[in-house]
Write a protein that binds this DNA or RNA. Structure first.
Lengths: 357, 357
DNA sequence: CTGAAAGCGCTTACAG
DNA sequence: CTGAAAGCGCTTACAG
């Protein structure tokens, strides 16, 4: 509707057929079109302001260089931007476009989104989750490559942060700084079901494993499921009240928001981070760097997860294209991986952990 | 490549022509196809798992129901999610899809993005800016409707927060709570150029206007351009040091991050918000609700701006389609509005302002 | 080295 | 009420 100039216009302009123009423009290797012709065609294209109609190409070739990104709540989340950025940047690197949709919680929301994507002939799709959990995908997506970012689903490829390792290394870090007695805020009373969260359990499991491995002791603990600052505030106050009994010199917060509440409680009591109390946390939301002092925390790799997801989709699209050309009976490249890809969760050192001992 | 069932399959299945099937599926009003036939066709479609190939339709009709969203840094910002959500939701309401791309700062980045969008035959585009400023758009976008969200450009339709009004009402709010002497943190030494920011100047102008109108006095002030928490921290300390001279009972922070620094300084001195000092701020980032006490701040309406931008694009696409049918010579509906649409910036009352007097 | 022709899946006048 | 035919803009064997 907007691009008026077509290859027919160019063909007429240079006195060649549309076939030749098409080949010249796409520099097809097979048919040896002389450099001079190619040059002439491209110049005409530039001159006329030709912009190819991808819709037409898509219809002909069945390939769209487009993938769908369906976000389930990530769009509403403080981590949305990083995941989206990862997706967009690597899509751009490979000249892919991304069609984006947010899906609500209605039961058929995901089905509708996937169907909309299919009718737009995407070559794959990524489902981005706000928090890592087990989802179930409708099954109408025959053969379409898909990947779950920050979550898992039945037979689909999955990319998740390596939370267990993160928990382990968090404790190791504390140990390396001389800490042996720590308090913990935010353990779930019972591990949440995978449909609710996969990672919360893993994070805590990692922390426990880290303690076991390094001889660090959790000497005090306040559990909680609402990982927001009030939990941290009240939790820290409780822990501070029992300090002479526990002797904790560091508080591990299950996430940054809890940690923010911890800072508030500490400040209220005129206690200093990290001199009077070390604080270590998880997530690395922007907040972490705005606190005083800036907080040491484990960085959730949303950017990387987005990039990896897109990378996977592009690979699928490419190898699918090849497979089609070479041999149709080949086993599909886009076979679902059952092992999730675990992404490293780096620690970002700032100023909230003191070296003791 | 993925949707195998076509209307030809359906046609064969029900023993009709593809033309009839197409009409039945789209319930065209003109040709009176009997209900029974429509029923039969739709049932067959459902039965076979038909999903229409929008690429084909697009090529035929020249209409894609797709718009482009090119983000200039918003994807990297704490407000990204709300703007994107506003766009996606209203696109969905109108059955539009959105193609998303992030554009880097390279000089031809925007041109490349727009060109990519055109070759994908979008029916319009929105440019989303991280901070409201004047941008210039390449001119190769003949007749394509476009809108700048959170910014302005030459002859393009523009949607921006009504910052000046916000500043005015912020002061009025303080006055209504008995405040007459306030301190201000964050005024730019000189108004930034429009290419840098349009709104910073407006916000401050509104504050001044509000003071003039309501008799509130700015009795102390610390200027600054780096609107992050350290400015608030140091600014508040300076203001607090001069308190007996100024007598300020409220601090107006130019944004939430500054306000966070103010909170930190206050807490360090064992001063309470709002009992010892009221704090009023701008932006309403998620942070504002996590502080203790939750902070009263003016809410930047990113969601609404996104929604309005998409609404505008959908309107353009629709009236453009009509215009094409009815009369080609009609004046384009998508004519650039030179007056920006100003969106209300509501105050969200929380607990950081005390009533005095 | 280049062109004529078919076809991707749909929609739309135009006949009947 | 329904069908045959053309065509959207491209690419791709297949001839020459």
């Amino acid at each position: 509707m907007e691009s008026r100039i077509t290859i027919a216009d160019i063909a007429q302009h240079v006195g060649l057929s549309t076939a030749t123009v098409s080949m010249a423009l796409n520099s097809v290797h097979k048919s040896r079109i002389p450099e001079a012709t190619i040059e002439r065609v491209q110049q005409a294209a530039r001159h006329l302001g030709y912009v190819p109609n991808l819709t037409a190409r898509n219809l002909r070739t069945g390939t769209t260089s487009t993938v769908g990104f369906v976000s389930s709540g990530v769009t509403v989340t403080r981590f949305a931007s990083q995941m989206i950025r990862g997706i967009l940047d690597t899509a751009d690197e490979h000249s892919f476009s991304v069609l984006m949709m947010e899906v609500d919680r209605s039961p058929d929301g995901m089905a509708r989104a996937l169907s909309a994507l299919r009718s737009r002939a995407v070559e794959g799709f990524a489902v981005g989750l706000m928090s890592p959990r087990l989802v179930s995908l409708p099954h109408l997506t025959s053969g379409l490559p898909g990947v779950i970012i920050n979550g898992q689903a039945d037979g689909w490829h999955s990319i998740m942060p390596d939370e267990e390792d993160a928990g382990r290394r968090a404790i190791a870090y504390l140990r390396a700084h001389g800490h042996r007695r720590v308090a913990l805020i935010g353990r779930y009373p019972t591990d949440p079901a995978p449909e609710v969260s996969i990672c919360i359990g893993a994070r805590l499991r990692g922390i426990d494993a880290g303690c076991a491995a390094s001889g660090v002791q959790i000497v005090d603990e306040v559990p909680g499921e609402a990982w927001e600052s009030p939990l941290g505030f009240e939790g820290a106050n409780a822990i501070l009240d029992r300090l002479d009994r526990s002797g904790a010199a560091a508080i591990v917060a299950a996430n940054d928001r809890i940690a923010m509440g911890v800072y508030q409680a500490l400040c209220d009591r005129n206690l200093r981070v990290p001199d009077d109390m070390s604080v270590l946390s998880f997530d690395d939301e922007p907040l972490a760097n705005m606190m005083r002092p800036p907080m040491t925390t484990l960085h959730l790799p949303y950017l990387e997860m987005g990039a990896l997801g897109m990378e996977y989709l592009v690979d699928c699209a490419r190898s699918h294209g090849r497979a089609q050309k070479n041999a149709d009976n080949q086993s599909s490249q886009s076979e679902p991986h059952s092992e999730p890809t675990l992404v490293h969760v780096p620690i970002v050192e700032r100023d909230s952990v003191r070296t003791i001992g």
